[in-house]
């Protein structure tokens, strides 16, 4: 894996995250922080994938990274964490395999559709698990049920 590939991926992840942050109406002063969180998460996932890590584990660790980073940044700005985690996680959402399911089915490729759907489910599950693990690690209030 060359340095150029990594730089290109980093730049593109930054652009994608900031683009969606603008769509989500994130205030301008927070755009850079959102972009960096998203870029970091994508780089973690991308480099793991390149080194042959299973996609689900890579997505889990990427999301965990975003959850922890989001916590650090949100403490720094004293703002709700979801601003940084929800925008940062955007590059990990398996949108493409999810809507490809129907396209596969339309072409009569039942196996392809099922595989694509299961893959999308597994990745979203891994992303949610990563974010939740970060919450549980950091936020001691959430380890127990509220009375």
């Amino acid at each position: 894996m060359g340095v150029e590939t990594l730089l290109l991926q980093a730049l593109m992840a930054l652009l994608a995250t900031v683009g969606f942050a603008v769509l989500f109406n994130v205030p301008p002063r927070l755009l850079a922080a959102c972009g960096l969180v998203g870029m970091g998460g994508h780089l973690v996932r991308f480099s793991l994938l390149q080194n042959g890590t299973a996609p689900v584990l890579a997505a889990y660790l990427g999301a965990l990274f975003i959850g922890v980073m989001g916590y650090a940044v949100s403490t720094r700005y004293k703002l709700p964490r979801l601003v940084f985690t929800v925008t940062g996680i955007i590059t990990m959402i398996p949108g493409i395999p999810a809507y490809e399911v129907l396209l596969f089915f339309y072409e009569g490729n039942i196996n392809g559709g099922l595989a694509s759907g299961v893959y999308a489910l597994l990745i979203s599950g891994a992303v949610a698990a990563g974010l939740s693990t970060a919450r549980l690690l950091i936020d001691t209030d959430l380890r127990h049920m509220q009375p």
Binding site: L11, M12, L15, A16, V18, G19, F20, L23, N25, H42
Partner: peptide, 24 residues
């Protein structure tokens, strides 16, 4: 209302989707 003018949102969303096409 929204913090960004519409053309900025359209452009940024466009750039984000373009970036995704490079990522994949």
């Amino acid at each position: 209302g929204m913090l960004y003018p519409r053309w900025v949102v359209a452009l940024m969303v466009g750039l984000a989707c373009g970036a995704f096409s490079v990522i994949i």
